[in-house]
């Protein structure tokens, strides 16, 4: 810690942390909590354009499903529109862009893993929608209300999982951050050494991408401590599984409505195909956003190396803030403060 004026360090931290907080505030404000801010909604800019596009594609779906009943070739158009709809729709809330991106940033995952997580969660999401409609509606003849209740239970599980993932990351990253700031230097070293012993996967990992990361740490002169990313869990896929489930468990309301409509037209399988293609489109958007987040995290890591002191602190601060974003997101979703999609009046 010596040699670096605290003021400068704090100023450097201010940037990422305040920006992330801004993101959360904007997200929460846009969600228009019920009972507050009852102003007429406004949507402009790029967001407004996305909104208009996805609504346009969604509205085309019912006509195309009907058309597919009369003429099989309309099914291809349906799949094309479903794909476009998925791409645009993922920009809306409920598809885990923010959670996945924050997760990747906090965990210092590679972009390949980011893409894999995005695709896995989007496919799981498609699968949940199909399972709910397939079992509840097609087999059991459940009502829309029953399906809505099922979705609500799934939501609670999924949002709780998001909070838990965030808390876990916050615990690991927050401590690394405090460590980087120079708090409790002595006792922490011991702490880390202790956890190190428990982390069985650690040695395998050492040879992969975490290598250049170690240099960052050693620049801070405690390269002996295990990297926080290693502490976050053993294998990346295993630790990513929780994130995949947390994000992908909750089905998309749009997909459920489309599936029920297709079922009513006697074209359930066309609905299933449409849902999977939608998921593919969703995955592409989420993966693209996640890749940008990972790339920025990588660049920040490189920059951190050139500025050993502040750089590492900013990096750890960024990771901690990303973990905090996940917690806040999950909590906001769980408490209903941040409205995701809903199935109304059923």
């Amino acid at each position: 810690m010596t040699g670096w004026p605290r003021l400068r360090v704090l100023r450097g931290l201010l940037v990422p942390v305040s920006l992330l907080l801004l993101l959360v505030i904007v997200e929460a404000a846009m969600a228009q909590p019920f009972g507050l801010n009852r102003a007429a909604p406004e949507a402009g800019g790029f967001a407004g354009w996305i909104l208009a596009k996805q609504a346009e594609f969604y509205r085309m779906l019912s006509g195309l499903i009907r058309a597919a009943k009369a003429d099989g070739s309309a099914a291809y158009t349906l799949l094309g529109i479903s794909f476009l709809y998925g791409i645009f729709h993922a920009a809306g809330p409920g598809h885990g862009k923010a959670v996945i991106s924050s997760y990747l940033v906090a965990n210092n995952e590679t972009w390949r893993r980011g893409v894999a997580l995005s695709f896995a969660s989007a496919l799981l999401q498609a699968f949940t929608a199909i399972a709910i409609v397939g079992v509840a509606a097609a087999l059991l003849g459940a009502t829309a209300k029953a399906m809505g209740n099922t979705v609500r239970v799934i939501e609670i599980v999924s949002y709780t999982l998001i909070v838990l993932i965030g808390l876990r990351l916050l615990w690991v990253k927050g401590r690394a951050f405090l460590h980087a700031l120079g708090f409790g230097e002595g006792s922490h070293t011991q702490n880390h050494a202790h956890e190190h012993g428990h982390d069985r996967g650690h040695h395998q990992h050492h040879h992969h991408h975490d290598h250049d990361h170690d240099h960052e740490a050693s620049a801070w002169s405690h390269g002996h401590a295990p990297e926080p990313s290693e502490l976050a869990g053993d294998h990346w896929l295993k630790r990513g599984l929780a994130a995949i489930v947390a994000v992908g468990l909750r089905p998309c309301s749009g997909a459920i409505i489309v599936l029920v409509f297709a079922l009513a037209q006697g074209l359930f399988w066309i609905g299933v195909a449409s849902t999977f293609v939608m998921g593919l489109g969703t995955a592409i958007t989420v993966a693209a956003i996640a890749t940008v987040a990972v790339a920025a995290r990588g660049l920040a890591g490189k920059l951190a190396k050139t500025k050993p002191g502040v750089g590492v602190i900013v990096l750890r601060g960024f990771e901690t803030a990303a973990a905090l974003v996940i917690v806040l997101f999950g909590a906001a979703l769980l408490t209903g403060y941040l409205a995701s999609e809903r199935l109304i009046g059923v």
């Binding site: 990422p16 846009m30 809330p93 923010a98 991106s101 999609e341």
Partner: peptide, 22 residues
């Protein structure tokens, strides 16, 4: 860089749920 990432995230976030019921 942070700004670019965040605007990337925020762009998506700013787009609200689109109508599912007309």
């Amino acid at each position: 860089i942070f700004l670019v990432v965040l605007s990337g995230l925020a762009t998506g976030s700013l787009a609200q749920a689109h109508p599912h019921v007309w």
